[in-house]
Nucleic acid binder design. Sequence first.
DNA 1: CTACATCCTCTAGCGACTAGAGGTGCAAGA
DNA 2: TCTTGCACCTCTAGTCGCTAGAGGATGTAG
Lengths: 140, 140
Amino acid sequence: MKKITIGEAARQSGVKVPTVRYYESIGLLAAPSRSEGNQRSFEPADISRLAFIRHARELGFEIDAIRTLLTLQDDPHQSCASADAIAKARLIEVEQRIRSLMALKAELEIMVEGCGHGRVDQCRVIEVLADHGQCTHPHH
Amino acid sequence: MKKITIGEAARQSGVKVPTVRYYESIGLLAAPSRSEGNQRSFEPADISRLAFIRHARELGFEIDAIRTLLTLQDDPHQSCASADAIAKARLIEVEQRIRSLMALKAELEIMVEGCGHGRVDQCRVIEVLADHGQCTHPHH
DNA sequence: CTACATCCTCTAGCGACTAGAGGTGCAAGA
DNA sequence: TCTTGCACCTCTAGTCGCTAGAGGATGTAG
């Protein structure tokens, strides 16, 4: 049972030190016990929780969604319908985002390809920006 | 030469009223002249500028990048190399974002499909979140 | 003239951190 | 033992791009 410092916890979970403190401050992570010198002393379970949070953040879940997911994880006898709903909602968000980014990519490509590398008054980048009507995919 | 109110400008450009004021406050839009009663009175050129900004924002350009693009637009004799570079950088960003979202989508799909709609302790959603090692695409 | 929409300024808040100031704790080498 | 130097502590304020609300002034239609 050696003590895990905040730096160790950060290294092992991949969450930055100030972010760990931030998560504690917003109640996402329980306040750990303290050493004599008032330094945080984490448990292995805290590392797992931090890794969970980090992974969920990487997947783009919002803190509030993560809060719900964590309470579900804490009580494994609950129905997982909420977790399922949260993940599904996130999937739909991601799919929409991809679609919109694809349209955006197409437009940026036209802009960049059309640029004659001359002066601004012949520049397709500026021109397209100034006139939305020139977009091939105007639905953004 | 009828006066264009901020509401009109907002409607025509698709930028919201408080956002127009915000753009003025950060110097993205020149402060327009005022009526006797201290109300803003915009020119048609302001509407174009606002539409330009809005379009660029929709394409995900940051305010600082837009600032540069606008100074380029203001001086059409400059080389468009900067505009080109900004657009290219944005294109690369978008491409990376799409790639990462595709990986993310795959992972979310596995989570959602694997969910047996039972209790949390059998839930794939929670399980995958807790253990990054289960990801098929661990590079996010 | 009155009602009501629109305008004004100003401050504070959002999410999810991040940076910095100013100070304390702790482990290792001389 | 002392000192060096890193890691830790708390706290406040800043980031980005707006958005919301308070509290009041102006403009317009009936």
